[in-house]
């Protein structure tokens, strides 16, 4: 009977990943068939890069230690948005002034950034994200520490 055979396949947990992957492949295929999708031009947090800035590509506009305008969904909820982006530590400030492409925003020098958007406006995302990392580490280190 066909029902019995379907249930046989479903009941084996080795089969669920192929089933799920197959499902994803089918949905992606449907997605390809539904293209093109329109890109909505009125986006939040638009990106403009000043190629001539010594802080390129991390320069989000505005001189250091000021506030830049960030187009957010609910500006009234994050009054200090824009300060973090332009903040440079004194050492970064020195690097940015003396060299090209060194010394970027926010207490991290070559290349490292703490992102303004993640910080001020989408803070909850950044709370959840390290939590996922934390949980994964907890699982891995619990298994590692346990006597085999």
């Amino acid at each position: 009977m066909i029902i019995r055979r379907i249930s046989d396949v479903l009941s084996n947990y080795e089969n669920i990943l192929p089933l799920f992957a197959g499902g994803c492949a089918i949905v992606f295929l449907i997605g390809v068939l539904l293209l093109p999708l329109p890109y909505y031009d009125d986006q939040l947090y638009p990106k403009t890069i000043d190629r001539n800035s010594s802080l390129d590509p991390y320069d989000r506009g505005g001189p250091p230690f000021t506030q830049v305008v960030i187009k957010s969904q609910y500006p009234e909820n994050s009054p200090t948005a824009g300060y973090v982006t332009t903040y440079l530590t004194p050492f970064s400030w020195f690097l940015a002034n003396t060299t090209h492409h060194l010394g970027t925003t926010i207490v991290a020098h070559p290349g490292g950034i703490i992102d303004e958007i993640l910080y001020n406006t989408r803070g909850l995302d950044t709370v959840v994200e390290p939590t996922i990392l934390f949980i994964a580490f907890a699982i891995a280190s619990f298994l590692f520490r346990r006597e085999p």
Binding site: D125, V128, I132
Partner: peptide
């Protein structure tokens, strides 16, 4: 309760990994 779509997906991913953790021990 979250009202943000990406935040929702992150919480869902967290649910997934904690579910694995509950039984993996």
């Amino acid at each position: 309760v979250t009202g943000d779509l990406f935040n929702f997906t992150l919480f869902v991913a967290l649910v997934g990994i904690t579910n694995v953790g509950i039984v993996a021990a």
